[in-house]
Amino acid sequence: MPGPSGKPNPSAAPGLRLDKWLWQARFFKSRSLAAEVIEAGAVRVNGTRISRPGRDVSAGDVLTFAQGARIRVVRILALGERRGPAAEAQAMYLDLDPPATPEALE
């Protein structure tokens, strides 16, 4: 991320657009769908509601968002290079959701 002088800041953590990360991690079928959810204010990054799809996220950030009928809570472990297979996408995050109880499945 460039500093005030326009030169890259070497101490800044690398980041990736939130909508792009959600798409690469296979939470949404398209970046535009991810962007719509973000613009609606339905995504939180580290507890703060976000409405800009271009907001940078980095490893260690915790995301909270609705996916269908579920509320997902995930910690970003890695930034992706591409939208790869599901196994590669699952390695990009740690699911912090509590496991479903048998009563909830009925």
Rank of each mutant, 00 (worst) to 15 (best):
A25P: 02
A35H: 09
R52I: 13
E36Y: 11
E39C: 10
R52M: 12
G54I: 02
V43C: 02
I38P: 07
W21V: 00
F28A: 05
G47A: 09
R49A: 12
V57Q: 06
G41S: 05
R55Q: 14
R52E: 14
S30C: 08
Q24S: 03
A25M: 04
E39K: 14
A40F: 04
R44L: 13
A34Q: 09
D56H: 04
A42M: 14
G41H: 05
V57P: 00
S32T: 14
F28S: 04
V37G: 10
E39S: 14
E36D: 15
R44K: 14
G41N: 08
V43N: 08
A34K: 09
G47S: 07
W23E: 02
A40G: 11
A34T: 04
E36H: 12
G47R: 10
R26Y: 06
S51V: 15
L33A: 12
R26P: 08
W21Q: 00
E36R: 15
W21A: 00
S30W: 08
P53R: 02
S51P: 07
S32H: 11
P53T: 03
R49K: 13
V43K: 08
E39P: 05
F28E: 04
V37A: 13
Q24E: 09
V45E: 06
K20C: 00
T48S: 12
V43T: 03
N46Q: 07
Q24I: 03
N46Y: 02
Q24H: 14
V45Q: 09
R49Q: 10
A35F: 06
A35G: 13
V43F: 03
G41M: 06
A40E: 15
T48Q: 13
W21E: 04
F27K: 04
G54D: 13
S30Y: 00
V45G: 07
R26Q: 13
S32N: 13
I38L: 05
F27N: 05
R52G: 10
G54H: 05
R55H: 10
Q24A: 12
L22G: 03
R31W: 07
V37Y: 06
A34W: 04
A42S: 14
G54T: 11
K29A: 07
A42D: 14
V37E: 13
V43I: 10
I50A: 05
I38V: 11
L22R: 04
L33T: 11
V45N: 01
W21K: 00
T48L: 12
G41K: 08
R55C: 09
T48W: 06
I50D: 02
A25C: 01
V57G: 03
I38W: 04
A42K: 15
W21G: 00
N46C: 01
K20F: 01
N46H: 03
R52A: 14
K29L: 04
F28Q: 08
R55V: 14
V43Y: 03
I50Q: 11
F28M: 06
A25I: 06
A25K: 02
R31Y: 07
K20E: 03
G41E: 08
A34H: 05
E36S: 15
S32E: 13
E39T: 14
Q24K: 00
R31I: 10
A40S: 15
T48H: 13
A34N: 09
L33G: 08
T48D: 10
R31E: 06
I38Q: 07
L33R: 13
V57W: 00
F27I: 05
R44M: 09
G47I: 09
V37D: 12
A25H: 08
I50F: 00
R44N: 08
